[in-house]
């Protein structure tokens, strides 16, 4: 904290008497000052509400802290590996990690594929295009609580429309409890993820598609390339860098996701992802140390995956 303050805070008062007597500050230095002063509030908020908490989580992960004993624990109490040990050996740890991975990869691939198809079909102008494009963004902008609730009701075995129609039109023998049985819950959550986040991929891919020069495709057409060939050899190579970037962005975001899974299944029926588990440690068990340790494990695993990804696709992303 104290290290950031002097720049914007103290120096102007110290320098104020200087200009009339000595030569004024150079333009360059004044610019630098102004820059720091203007960016200071942003930095302060970010450091206070995000930077410090991240470091603190690291500290908490190695301390024995429970909500009840919170007042007694100092910032630098005794350090212990207990939490990490406990987190690694609590039943279900490996499974949670595995579920999170499947969920993230499934959600990422699903949303990018859907987004790609969506971008390809609305690329060229047609009547009502603006409306179609706006509608396609609805799942992404609508409140997560509202859309998860609608999905829950739609998939409900008793009052859900999906089961009503499934039984009437598709001849299902019994209603399928999509979100509460092990065999379908994770898949349903992944489908939801793809549905909710394809607009994100769609926006980026559409923007890129519209920047592809028309002459490229025109030339390919003159050379006799069919539509699928033009996609394969002209459009796809242009899109690959964006797809690679979307891959890493969506993977990170899905890996960290809490709301969607928590609201759809509460982490039951084999859908417990790491962030839901952290939440459980934090609130149900009020075991802050274990929650922090679990969160650190989440961050570390995430960083490892991203590094691996960048190693393979790094050149494309940058």
């Amino acid at each position: 904290m104290t290290t950031t303050a002097p720049g914007p805070g103290r120096s102007p008062t110290r320098e104020r008497p200087a200009p009339p007597r000595r030569r004024p500050l150079t333009l360059r230095r004044r610019e630098s000052r102004a820059g720091l002063a203007l960016v200071a509030p942003t930095l302060l908020v970010t450091i206070a509400v995000i930077g410090i908490p991240i470091v603190w989580t690291l500290v908490l992960a190695f301390q024995r802290v429970r909500l009840a004993t919170l007042r007694k624990t100092g910032l630098f109490g005794e350090f212990t590996m207990d939490n990490i040990d406990r987190v690694l050996h609590t039943p279900g740890f490996a499974e949670t990690l595995w579920v999170t991975l499947i969920y993230s990869i499934g959600g990422t691939v699903g949303s990018i594929l859907l987004g790609l198809v969506a971008a390809l079909v609305v690329r060229r102008p047609f009547r009502g295009r603006t409306l179609v494009r706006a509608s396609m963004l609805l799942p992404y902008v609508a409140p997560v609580v509202a859309v998860t609730f609608v999905w829950q009701v739609m998939l409900d075995p008793q009052l859900g429309i999906v089961n009503a129609w499934g039984q009437r039109l598709l001849g299902w023998d019994a209603p399928v409890p999509f979100l509460t049985q092990e065999s379908t819950a994770l898949a349903t959550v992944i489908v939801f993820e793809a549905w909710r986040y394809f607009p994100f991929a769609f926006l980026f891919l559409l923007a890129r598609l519209q920047a592809v020069p028309g002459e490229l495709e025109e030339a390919a057409r003159v050379d006799g390339a069919t539509p699928t060939q033009r996609f394969r050899h002209i459009l796809l190579p242009q899109l690959l860098p964006v797809i690679a970037l979307l891959g890493v962005l969506r993977f990170i975001m899905t890996f960290n996701k809490f709301d969607d899974v928590y609201l759809l299944t509460g982490g039951a029926a084999g859908t417990e992802v790491v962030s839901v588990r952290v939440y459980e440690f934090l609130t149900a068990r009020t075991d802050i140390g274990a929650a922090a340790a679990q969160a650190v494990v989440l961050a570390v695993v995430l960083i490892v995956f991203v590094l691996i990804y960048l190693r393979f696709f790094g050149r494309r992303v940058s």
């Binding site: 908490p53 960290n256 809490f258």
Partner: peptide, 18 residues
């Protein structure tokens, strides 16, 4: 910061706010 898991930030904030 944008890509960092919000649940990680949530823990100390929960503690501090409590």
């Amino acid at each position: 910061v944008y890509l960092f898991p919000s649940i990680v930030i949530a823990i100390p904030l929960f503690v501090v706010f409590t």
